[in-house]
Design a protein around this nucleic acid. Structure first.
Lengths: 218, 218
DNA sequence: CCCCGCTGTGAACCATGGTTCATTTGTTCT
DNA sequence: AGAACAAATGAACCATGGTTCACAGCGGGG
């Protein structure tokens, strides 16, 4: 029975650690990377500041854990979309659209993961790299299937991410339409631009993007 | 003569103010926005920390002035390139190429002006907006001249900047070739990608980009 | 049932870096 | 030259926010 109890304790500790990371994630999503403060995160997790240091050696490590979690969540969403698509080109289109939609829906998160200069770089680069690698692969698949013209896939992937990210900071047009509609239009425009950049003719691209379901983030 | 002397003093003060801004600019270019510290900038300008506050009410204002100066310098370089070009499409190509070349040559500067999350945003957005406006205009000109397919120029301009900026943070290919050559190749690839995204056919774009002279930043 | 030790606490500590101000230094005008 | 005033100085001040630590509480094992 000794073992049993010990395991329960371990479970409690793991849960608390997860709660701390979750709190940090919330802060990142809601207020951006720069706004992450130990006391604030601790409060959100319902514990004292010092307790955080029983689970993480430093703020940097905590932020790293949070960004890793958020990054994986994004990657998973993209992966899901890509896998669900019927062929290489629509997989690429789906990935592009999902990425953009989620970025537009959570600009602070997108910035934190991709662009924010705060914090010692390393972690952010991990997500960027993973993302670029995945897009690179999707592009190469599409090329191999003869659905895209031959090109430097790695460079294209990198530039692609940049172009799509630009949407979240770029100038919102003064919206007369309801917010959701504007966001959807923005996502669609960006995705079309991106696909055209890769060499997809416009009409074809439109079909690919429109057929993609725009999801809720999370 | 009273007037004469007064004017000399004013000149000295203006010069000193300029020196402070210049020092701040150097720091931004060399070490990034986050590394700007009053004491360090003051030392670089050859004065004491307190003196800075005779010329600027706060660090924020100083940084704003520095970024404004740097932004204008970039805009001027782009403007020069665009004006020198023979037609709307090559003006656009020239602007794209120069922007990219300078960004690749001074990554820290590019990041500070475009992406860095440090400092209360406002100033950076000014440059971004100016840049986007200029590209928007160049794109619209090219469309009007029938050299580009019709499209949402504002969105395209924004995405364009994002795509080009991505190059400076993106993965450097492991360079076997000398640094300068790699940089030039990188600039060319990015510029081609960007022009294709705007609807220029590849062969035509290559000609436009290659003919552009890659300059020294400054 | 009580002791031990692990977990939680939060006030205090420390480092960083922007800002201030009493004092010193230099310049202008008579 | 000397009074008067502006500018420069830089050490001290303050705010912010990460990190520590001596202590309290709780739960599990004997």
């Amino acid at each position: 029975m000794a073992y049993r109890r010990t395991e329960n304790v371990a479970r409690r500790l793991a849960a608390r650690r997860a709660a701390i990371v979750a709190a940090a994630c919330e802060t990142v999503v809601e207020e951006g990377l720069a706004a992450v403060q130990i006391v604030e995160v601790a409060a959100r997790a319902g514990i004292a500041a010092g307790t955080v240091y029983r689970y993480f050696p430093s703020k940097t490590e905590l932020v790293a854990a949070a960004l890793a979690a958020l990054g994986e969540r994004e990657m998973a969403a993209i992966e899901r979309a890509a896998r669900a698509a019927p062929g290489p080109l629509s997989a690429l289109a789906a990935a592009v659209t999902i990425f953009t939609a989620r970025a537009v829906a959570s600009p602070r998160l997108a910035i934190a993961l991709i662009a924010d200069g705060a914090q010692p770089a390393v972690v952010r680069n991990a997500y960027r790299a993973a993302l670029a690698a995945r897009f690179d692969e999707l592009i190469r698949n599409a090329i191999a299937a003869g659905r895209l013209p031959d090109q430097d896939a790695a460079m294209a992937a990198s530039a692609l991410i940049g172009a799509l990210s630009a949407g979240v900071v770029g100038p919102r047009p003064p919206a007369a339409a309801p917010e959701a509609t504007v966001a959807r239009a923005q996502v669609q425009s960006l995705a079309l631009f991106a696909l055209r950049a890769l060499g997809v003719v416009d009409a074809r691209a439109r079909g690919l993007v429109v057929q993609t379901v725009l999801p809720q983030p999370g």
